[in-house]
Nucleic acid binder design. Structure first.
Length: 490
RNA sequence: CGGGGUAUAGCGUAGUCCGGUUAGCGCGCCUGCUUUGGGAGCAGGAGGUCGCAGGUUCAAAUCCUGCUACCCCGACCA
């Protein structure tokens, strides 16, 4: 265990913060609320990007890039959209600096004031729909299936590394379709991609559903989401996919001629996941010994550490270690052989354990004699000594086992922390302890707001795979069509 | 924006109340030797505008005034 590293039980949020910093994932920057993503953290993000990017492309999407700046007037066009983002926008008002009169400092040149202010994008719907207007005239131009990898800025009051930062990285998909049906299908297709990614790559089980009107994206007709449960019992929204109806098409006047020569508004979707997924990944699996990474997203899947007394011994071990490294790499496994002489083995053990490397192989003089190797897995912290014969297949299987074990562990945690609650008293008591609560709700925004005010719990999602069970609202006792998921959220 | 707090080496801190030698300690860093199967030991060494600006004083990390930044709680937040 790292020195002075708090346990989850002692102080969960301190644990999270220290973990992010001490595992070299990210740190706070000189700019308030903005983080520096360090190489190790960024390597994980790149693996996420690569997997998602392939999934998008396999389903017919293409990448493009739109400007970071959006003319202020664009935000006037979709009323609810501007309302949702206005309070957190950074605004560019000038385009030049100059040396002050006394020559001592650099100041804003007031003569260089912009005619129209530019907003640093908090999301790109407006500039993209302004652009799509020029791309779309006929049904033959549809659909447009575009994604962009970008940074966005939302001026949040309080920030936390990866979970909520002023600037963050994400992908945003923006699609345009002929029909409502096709757009809804697209929205759901992406939701399924996000679900697959969360569960199969991140090993994080998620609930799929829609948002209540209160929590809906500004400008959307329907917001779909995936919600994950963190180890402290709080929910984390891991991805959203919005059916935008014809709202943006109408706001930006994007019409097309149908086969029947009729002029119609385009149907739209938008969808995104961000570096917040890093937060979900970290919080879902890690333990009091540090980070735990699922093999599919670990920048280093296997680390090999030599034990030796003399240089000659190291040379012999290195021959063997490099053979193993090569055999593993031929299986597509990423391996680091750490033969640095500047750190002792014990130090390295702790280091890689803290950084969540799924498998550690240790090879020393004893192993050379016996043709063996010590294999330690990060998820269970178990160690065993194996024969080197066929080691690449053994490791390949073990990585698969670790991947599925992490998912199973997270899934049983969620199951153990999901509760069906039918009385308001039980609800208030349970919400203090965390977890997902399945409860009935009368469907009104007022009730949702009152529950939030009294308990800080929000409706995380209205599950798609619903129980179709009618009942009475936990708060008002009025009729309810189905149970929804309540939780306190990040 | 409201309430509370903090600012001393890369990091964590002592000293501040009650002004007085060369600002101390731990981790980390550098050099050498011994070590290496779970964060090594010994010896030596480098590193400080004490957040910024001004004031009081023979003398300021310490007292006074102003400013700035950051942290916590609330509000805010898809």
């Amino acid at each position: 265990m790292a020195k002075n590293f708090p346990t989850r039980k002692e102080n969960y949020s301190q644990w999270y913060n220290d973990l992010v910093i001490k595992a070299d994932l990210a740190e706070n920057s000189a700019v308030r609320g903005c983080m520096v993503i360090k190489p190790y953290g960024f390597a994980i993000w790149e693996k996420m990007q690569a997997a998602l990017d392939k999934m998008f492309k396999d389903t017919g999407h293409q990448n493009a890039y739109f400007p970071i700046f959006i003319p202020k007037s664009f935000f006037n066009k979709e009323a609810s959209h501007v309302k949702g983002f206005a309070k957190e926008c950074a605004v560019v008002t000038h385009y030049r600096l100059k040396t002050s009169e006394d020559g001592k400092e650099i100041v804003v040149d007031e003569d260089a004031k912009l005619e129209e202010e530019l907003i640093i994008r908090p999301t790109s719907e407006t500039i993209i729909w302004d652009t799509y207007k020029n791309w779309i005239q006929s049904y033959r131009d549809l659909p447009i299936l575009v994604n962009q990898w970008a940074n966005v800025v939302r001026w949040e009051m309080r920030t936390r590394l990866f979970l909520r930062t002023t600037e963050f990285l994400w992908q945003e998909g923006h699609t345009a379709h002929e029909t409502k049906k096709e757009a809804v299908e697209e929205t759901e297709k992406i939701l399924n991609i996000y679900t697959d990614f969360a569960e199969k790559w991140m090993a994080v089980p998620v609930l799929k559903g829609t948002k209540s009107p209160n929590e809906r994206f500004a400008g959307a007709v329907e917001t779909y989401c995936i919600e994950a449960l963190m180890q402290d019992g709080k929910a984390l929204q891991a991805g959203t996919s919005h059916f935008l109806g014809q709202n943006f098409a109408k706001a930006f006047d994007v019409k097309f001629l149908t086969k029947e020569n009729k002029l119609e508004y385009v149907w739209a979707t938008s969808w995104g996941v961000s570096t917040r997924l890093m937060g979900a990944l970290i919080m879902a699996h890690s333990d009091d010994n540090g980070l735990v990474l699922p093999p599919k997203l670990a920048p280093i899947q296997v680390v090999i550490i030599p034990i030796y007394k003399k240089k000659e011994q190291l040379d012999l071990i290195s021959v063997k270690a490099n053979q193993i490294k090569k055999a593993l790499e031929q299986k597509g496994i990423s391996v680091k052989y750490d033969d640095r002489d500047t750190h002792k083995p014990g130090w390295k053990f702790s280091e890689y354990e803290f950084k969540g490397v799924p498998i550690r192989l240790v090879i020393g003089p004893r192993d050379l004699e016996n043709e063996t190797i010590e294999v330690a897995r990060r998820d269970t912290l178990e160690k065993e000594v194996l024969q080197i014969t066929d080691i690449e297949n053994k490791i390949e299987n073990l990585l698969k086992q670790i991947q599925s074990n992490l998912f199973q562990k997270a899934l049983s945690f969620r199951e153990d922390n999901t509760f069906i609650i039918d009385t308001w008293d039980e609800f208030k008591e349970r919400i203090e302890k965390g977890g997902f609560i399945l409860a009935h709700w009368d469907g009104t925004a007022e009730t949702e707001q009152k529950i939030k005010d009294e308990t800080k719990a929000t409706i995380r999602t209205i599950p798609i795979e619903n129980l179709n069970e009618e009942g009475k609202c936990i708060y008002t006792g009025k009729h309810s069509k189905q149970r929804v998921i309540f939780a306190r959220a990040y």
